[in-house]
Design a binder for these strands. Structure first.
Length: 255
DNA sequence: ATGGCTATGTAGCATAGA
């Protein structure tokens, strides 16, 4: 089973890229973030034509998450139960016996902003809930835009980014607490190229200059991690005209 | 050099992203 995550930065703008990419890569499950679409405007029919069923939870302008799958998408849950949030950032569903969580973690804006406080509170609720989910679902995959670069090698210039939002210690601690639940960062189960990133600023030719961050992740429960045979960042969509600023990440699970 | 792009809502810029 091929599972993937991609922050498309507007599904309306990126639908063509997504459909082309689905046809090329044929992933079994895709978690999409930043759809920026109300549910009534979700392109269900286009995706169905491409061979994918959809679950989605969106809103106008900001946020919005979706799970696309070639098989049935069941037991859909929107949001973090017990955590009241207007922002559509989490969607869970079961596909072929695997519990999938699609997450769009708050950006946080800057460490001195209210949005940063919201991000840390959000992550605390996320951690608490994922602890419960892991007990219920031995086959659990948590995919998404975490807006956290966990390690210095996930940042093009760690000295410049140290203490900044996306690479501050409290955020990295929160990420490590998710790993502490028993989740594995599938990307680091394998040998990877230097300067592997999933996001690059649109400005300053950041992509061409390999000035990025690795902030999109696929975390796997132990059961899935032991059967994970690869995890890679797909740079091709970032090279297209009018790309998303994020690249997709794809992991393969055997069995 | 605290900008640089891009998307959205909405009709000239403000807000947000990361």
């Amino acid at each position: 089973m091929k599972i993937a995550t991609w922050n498309v930065n507007s599904l309306k703008v990126r639908l063509g890229h997504l459909l082309d990419w689905l046809a090329q890569r044929r992933p079994d499950v895709v978690c999409v973030q930043e759809t920026k679409l109300e549910d009534a405007k979700f392109p269900v029919a286009d995706l169905e034509k491409a061979g994918y069923r959809s679950a989605y939870s969106g809103q106008k302008t900001y946020n919005g998450v979706a799970i696309l799958a070639r098989e049935a998408v069941e037991a859909i849950v929107s949001g973090i139960p017990g955590f009241a949030d207007e922002q559509k950032r989490v969607l869970s569903a079961t596909v072929a016996g695997t519990r999938i969580v699609c997450a769009y973690v708050p950006n946080g804006q800057s460490v001195d902003s209210d949005k940063y406080r919201y991000k840390l509170d959000w992550l605390a609720a996320f951690e608490r809930w994922l602890g419960d989910e892991l007990k219920k679902h031995p086959r659990l995959a948590v995919l998404g835009d975490y807006n956290i670069a966990p390690d210095a090698r996930d940042v093009h210039d760690p000295q410049l980014w140290e203490g900044q939002v996306l690479f501050s210690e409290p955020e990295r601690d929160a990420f490590n607490r998710l790993l502490g639940l028993g989740l594995k960062d599938s990307f680091r189960l394998f040998e990877q190229p230097e300067r592997s990133f999933t996001w690059w600023d649109y400005r300053m030719n950041a992509f061409r200059r390999k000035m990025g961050l690795r902030i999109d992740h696929i975390l796997l429960s132990t059961d899935l991690a032991t059967r994970c045979t690869s995890c890679a960042i797909d740079l091709e969509p970032r090279r297209l005209e009018r790309p998303s600023d994020h690249a997709p990440v794809i992991a393969e699970i055997s069995g």
